[in-house]
Design a protein around this nucleic acid. Structure first.
Length: 623
RNA sequence: CGGGGCGUGGCUCAGCCUGGUUUAGAGCGCUUGGUUCGGGACCAAGAAGUCGGAGGUUCAAAUCCUCUCGCCCCGACCA
């Protein structure tokens, strides 16, 4: 078809056939481009593809200064997202297409394990959170406000209360159990510090699911099914390196929980992995299989250590390794009570472990005044001679099971040699509170643990009856007796998942999308479209792909080759076709994969069919 | 919340230390015309900024001072 206006070859040469609204996919419909006059008040839709000349969302050559990590840089530069405020982003058309595909995969897998999609409000009355008690326990990350009638409201950061509100009024019989409800909804958390681009934001889209069971056994069974669904989801969205690890269930309550971690350097979490994959744990709860030195106990002996307070100084002064000493660390818990922690000198206290053991929300280093008040001497504090009424003593196994340690003497400038737990101190709680170090032996396999960083893209919890008890969410059993429903909850961060995929799949030019969530399947570039035949051939291929349901992005701008190629790299569509005078001369088009694995000339005549086949084959790999 | 950094056209930045040759610049992007045309071309002409905001010092403030707001990074917190 001839170009209608030869002086403006970069305009799309043909108008699409307007298609009325209808047949919209669940969730979101796309509005197609316009390349010509359209009837007033009429938005054509139904075209799954796009001409690049019409696409809103400019690529940029410069890296925005606020972008630090790879995913953030490419999502900004590629025209996927734009910042609005700290930790708050708009999604541009490309970003919407990617997240919509991630959501579609999540829906399929949630439906597959019997989930029923619902949609709960973002704005919730505070009274619901008063019922569960969380309006008191959750801090300022919960955004609260009042409506015009002065009624306290809040923005949902998670929806346990809302879903329980739903469940307790809709379901009352054991015959209706179990069931699972899920939604894909905006969440708001007023983070103290949003960071990492799309990794930690204040407003985000999350799939959150809640299952309800008659008993814990049923929950445990179902939990395994959801775990499998999660493994499928993260494989299907194209995360190559995503592990499920044991995690700290923290303040969510409940016993069993897993986090799904996309391994990436910019991740906020530290993960320990056994090389054979048999042990995987978050740093917050990771254990090590360290062996401790047992010897014949030596007598307790006071030694002069003038001015030596730090472990390194004491050890050097006495000519022993730091691992032959005991380190004293004082904390103050949330109730202001003093806690004394004793750990082997070369190890650190894991405050999350300690906090969990103490069931204390807060834990701070004690200042010298508080230490003295308990009868201890800062710098020379000792497990010996502490007043049990004033301080709670926690001993890590590394200190409890090691023989003949050097510890403080509770007297300025003096330490003890030959401290042995069980002989010199008995009345203490022995609990693992140690930070694991990379290379420490795995508690399961004994192999050296590897440490890496992970992005938490999903988590699953066996919640139990925490919310059903407090919010009175019961069912009647066969005998007409009421029981609290036993709950599980399951989250996935959609935007985080998109960012994590980019972190794991990119090169120096831009993202390399997996076919399953790529914004488009095929990127067609018409080079020198003013030359005879090029625009026509590219347009024909474009229409042919559309007719076969392939989502094609058509670069019809007639930009210089390098410019177009760089844009294509930055967008990251997995398959690329180049139509140019050169290729047409040989009745060919050029085919290239974004990952660089393939690059070949294919016949123009069969190009459409070829590409349809390639897309189908690639998609099949993500089913 | 503690520490650090940064706010100058849509984007990246220079100018600030040492106030006045600055009617506030450059590159990218954008508009118009022309030449180019396979890895971010070139020429010419243009549009676009109350220099984050308020107050102060001064004959004179993007520049110095005070306050304030916003954004980014490290930490704390959170998941």
């Amino acid at each position: 078809m001839p170009c209608p206006d030869a002086s403006r070859p970069t305009r799309a040469p043909t108008a699409p056939v307007p298609v009325p609204h209808g047949g919209r996919q669940r969730g979101r419909g796309y509005i197609a481009h316009f390349a010509g006059a359209r009837p007033a008040g009429f938005l054509p839709s139904g075209d799954p593809a796009m001409r690049l000349s019409r696409l809103v969302g400019q690529r940029t050559k410069d890296t925005p200064k606020d972008a630090q990590n790879v995913s953030h840089i490419y999502m900004m530069r590629g025209g996927y997202v734009r910042p609005v405020s700290a930790g708050i982003y708009s999604l541009l058309p490309l970003g919407v297409r990617v997240t919509a595909k991630i959501e579609a995969i999540i829906r399929e897998e949630m439906d597959r394990v019997g989930g029923q999609e619902v949609l709960m409000p973002v704005v919730l009355p505070q009274e619901l959170w008063d019922e569960s008690g969380r309006s008191k326990t959750v801090g300022p990350e919960l955004l609260r406000f009042k409506d015009r009638n002065d009624k306290p409201m809040l923005l949902g950061m998670t929806h346990e209360e809302a879903v329980v509100h739903l469940a307790r009024s809709e379901v009352s019989s054991y015959r209706q159990m179990p069931f699972m409800l899920y939604q894909i909804q905006t969440k708001y958390r007023d983070e103290a510090r949003p960071r990492g681009g799309l990794i930690r934001v204040r407003e985000f889209t999350m799939k959150d699911a809640y299952s309800f069971h008659a008993d814990a056994e049923d929950l445990a069974r179902y939990y395994e099914q959801v775990h499998e669904a999660y493994v499928r989801i993260f494989r299907r969205v194209g995360l190559r390196n995503c592990v499920s690890i044991q995690s700290d269930s923290g303040m969510m309550g409940g016993a069993v929980s897993h986090e799904f971690m996309a391994i990436a350097d910019c991740g906020e979490d530290t993960v320990y992995l056994s090389p054979d994959g048999r042990y995987k744990a978050n740093k917050e709860i990771a254990r090590s299989g360290l062996k401790f030195l047992h010897e014949a106990p030596l007598p307790l002996e006071k030694v002069h250590t003038p001015g030596r307070t730090a472990i390194e100084e004491v050890a050097a002064f006495l000519g022993v390794e730091p691992s032959r000493t005991g380190k004293a660390v004082f904390y103050v818990d949330g109730d202001g009570k003093l806690v004394f922690a004793l750990i082997r000198g070369d190890l650190e206290v894991n405050e999350t472990k300690l906090r969990n053991y103490l069931k204390s929300r807060e834990l701070k280093f004690a200042d010298d005044g508080a230490i003295r008040a308990a009868g201890a001497v800062p710098g020379y504090a000792s497990p010996l001679g502490l007043d049990p009424a004033k301080v709670r003593v926690i001993v890590d196994p590394s200190a409890a099971e090691s023989s003949n340690l050097v510890v403080g003497a509770n007297e300025p400038d003096y330490h003890y040699r030959g401290f042995n737990y069980g002989r010199d101190l008995t009345a203490a709680e022995v609990v693992d509170i140690a930070v694991v170090r990379p290379g420490d032996p795995c508690p399961v396999t004994g192999l050296p643990l590897e440490m890496c960083r992970g992005i938490e893209v999903g988590n699953i919890f066996q919640l139990g009856t925490k919310y059903s008890l407090s919010m009175n969410c019961n069912y009647l059993d066969a005998n007409g007796k009421a029981h609290p429903m036993v709950m599980g909850c399951y989250g996935i961060g959609v935007g985080r998942t998109m960012a994590a995929v980019v972190e794991q799949s990119h090169d120096q030019y831009g993202p390399v999308w997996p076919m399953s969530i790529a914004p488009y399947h095929v990127h067609i570039i018409g080079l020198n479209p003013r030359q005879p035949g090029v625009a026509e051939a590219a347009e024909k291929l474009y229409q042919e792909l559309l007719a076969h349901g392939v989502e094609a992005l058509y670069d019809d701008r007639g930009e210089k080759a390098g410019f177009s190629f760089n844009d294509a790299d930055l967008i990251g569509v997995p398959l690329r076709v180049i139509v140019s005078p050169k290729t047409l001369e040989a009745q060919k088009v050029e085919f290239k994969t974004r990952d660089g694995s393939r690059h070949e000339m294919i016949d123009l005549a069969g190009a459409g069919e070829f590409l349809v086949g390639e897309v189908k084959a690639a998609l099949a790999g993500y089913r």
